[in-house]
Each structure stands twice: as C-alpha cells, then as structure tokens.
C-alpha cells in the first residue's frame, strides 16, 4: 500500500536534513506540477517535504540592491505586489501567465524553475532579467545564474539534497525595462508553444546599451540568445535591427514537433515573440 510521509519543516536546515535522509523525498511548493505528476504516476515520492512553512522560502523583499523572491512564494502574492509590477513588469507578466487564478494561488517561481519544463513561463523572463538562483545544501549556499539552472527537460543542477531558496534580481538600472510574451492557442490556461523574454537598456538618446533576450519552449531548456541581445546593442531598435534579433531568436531555437505545435511553427513564432518582447521592453524603458 501507498505509505507516503508529509513533512512541513520550519527551517532550511531541517528541510535539507529531510531531503538528505530520504532519497525518495520530493520538495513540495505549490504542488501544481508535482501533484499532477504524482497523480499521473510519473513521480512516486516517498515523502512530500512542504517548504511553505520555512520563512526564508516565502516572501518578497525589495531593497536598494534588488529583489529577493522566496522560492515558494505563490504567484498570486507576486502579482499583487505593486512595486514589483512597476520594476519588472515583464517578470510579473510571466508570473501572471502561470495557469489560472487558482493555480497562481499555489504555484511558485521556484517550482516553475525546479520543474524545469522548457515551456516554463517565468524562466525566460528571469534569464532576461539577469536573475540568480540561491541554492542551499548540506555544504552551505551557492548561487548560479538562472540560465544555468535547468539542464534539460525536467532536470536541473540541483543535487538531491539541495533546495532552491530564492531567486535574486538586481534592480534595473536607469531606462531599463523588461517584457515577456508567449504564444498559446487559447487566451489563458495553456502551456506555452513558444515564449520570449527581453530586457532592454537605453541611453538618454534612445540608443540601446544593453539587452538580453531569452526564449522558451523551443529547446530542451530556456535559452539565453546572446546573438539577439548583441544585435540590439548600439542601435536605436529600428525595424531592420528588430528583424535581425528575431532571426537570431529563431536561429537559436532547436524545437521539436509535439502536441502543442510543430517545430517549423515554433521556430517562426519565437522570432515574432522575441521582437514583440523587445519592442515592448524598449517602450517601457523609454518611459523611465
């Protein structure tokens, strides 16, 4: 018979101890991926380690350096935070796209990252925003950039006994803004067929001085597309430049055909989305 444990540790150390002592234990944040996979028989945990009662993992703290987002903070709390929406509208858009109001009441950015779906909406946005992942393990903490966190569909750099504690984002410099766009056939409640996040920095004259473009659902992991960002730097984001960046995003894509879309479609549409994200981010940057 099924005999699964439920644990709700109160500290990171306790959680790591629980993970280290039971190789079948799985971290439970919002459960919107894990419980679906468990019910489908895809995952068979021996224990659920509910990390939502660990204060460090839940909450939003914003200071002059930037943002620290507890890994298990529910998406809804992020969307309700007015200041976040002002500083990182693109990231908040991505968070707001996760599932439904119900799913956002549970699902977290940490879970979105750790589940490591290539289509995870927040991952591309986090990469564009130069986010870093704070990881705790038996040996202490380590920090890795978001673009290095996922290693393939469903796999991450986390070791079995490690926990994602938070993601941290540097405060956007002057005239810097982000945006995230995805393509789904419906208007809501769908998994991205392709997605693109961008962060754009302009100087006072409107010339792009820094840019990052990341794409999702078109490769085994979300990708930082350096060529797309590079194409923008030093330009005033004219039509030709945007097309170059879009082409770079499409070229970086290594999509598959599956039930959500064909490879040819994904490759094309990720360019369209990258362009739209860049245009939107630049428009926001101009207003800052």
């Amino acid at each position: 018979m099924l005999s699964i444990r439920y644990e709700a540790p109160r500290s990171i150390a306790e959680a790591i101890h629980l993970l280290a002592s039971d190789p079948g234990a799985h971290v439970l944040a919002g459960g919107t991926d894990l419980l679906v996979q468990f019910r489908a028989g895809a995952k068979q945990p021996s224990a659920f380690i509910d990390v939502k009662r660990i204060p460090d993992l839940v909450g939003i703290s914003l200071d002059t350096n930037g943002l620290r987002l507890g890994a298990a903070t529910p998406a809804a709390a992020i969307c309700e935070h007015a200041e976040l929406g002002r500083l990182w509208p693109g990231l908040v858009e991505a968070v707001h796209l996760i599932g439904s109001a119900q799913i956002q009441g549970r699902g977290s950015v940490g879970g979105n990252l750790c589940n490591a779906s290539p289509a995870a909406d927040t991952t591309s946005a986090l990469i564009a925003d130069r986010a870093e992942c704070v990881i705790a393990g038996p040996g202490g903490e380590r920090v890795v950039p978001a673009e290095r966190f996922c290693t393939g569909p469903g796999t991450t750099i986390l070791r079995r006994d490690e926990l994602l504690v938070a993601v941290v984002l540097p405060r956007p410099p002057a005239r810097t803004a982000d945006a995230y766009f995805r393509l789904i056939p419906r208007s809501e409640m769908d998994i991205a067929v392709a997605g693109a996040g961008a962060s754009v920095t302009l100087d006072a004259s409107g010339t792009c001085t820094a840019a990052r473009v990341a794409v999702g659902a078109v490769a085994p992991t979300a990708l930082l597309v350096d060529a797309a960002g590079q194409a923008l730097i030093g330009t005033r984001l004219d039509e030709a430049t945007l097309s170059l960046a879009a082409a770079a995003a499409s070229a970086a894509a290594r999509p598959i055909s599956d039930k959500r879309g064909t490879a040819a479609y994904r490759r094309h549409v990720v360019g369209v989305l990258a362009k739209r994200a860049i245009v939107s981010a630049a428009a926001r940057a101009r207003e800052r």
Binding site: E188, M189, D258, K259
Partner: peptide, 29 residues
C-alpha cells in the same frame, strides 16, 4: 472550430487526454 481535437501518437495513444491540452474555450476566449 478553433482548438479542440484528439491528438494521437503513432501507436494510437491519445496524447492530450486532459482539459489543459484538449483546449476547450475558457471565459477569456
């Protein structure tokens, strides 16, 4: 007309046997 369909793999196994991927209209559609 727009989105609903049964999607099968090469072995005749349904790949989208859930509401998320079967895609019936939601209120915002």
């Amino acid at each position: 007309a727009l989105n609903e369909e049964y999607i099968y793999d090469a072995d005749g196994v349904m790949e989208n046997a859930g509401f998320l991927d079967y895609r019936m209209p939601v209120a915002s559609d």
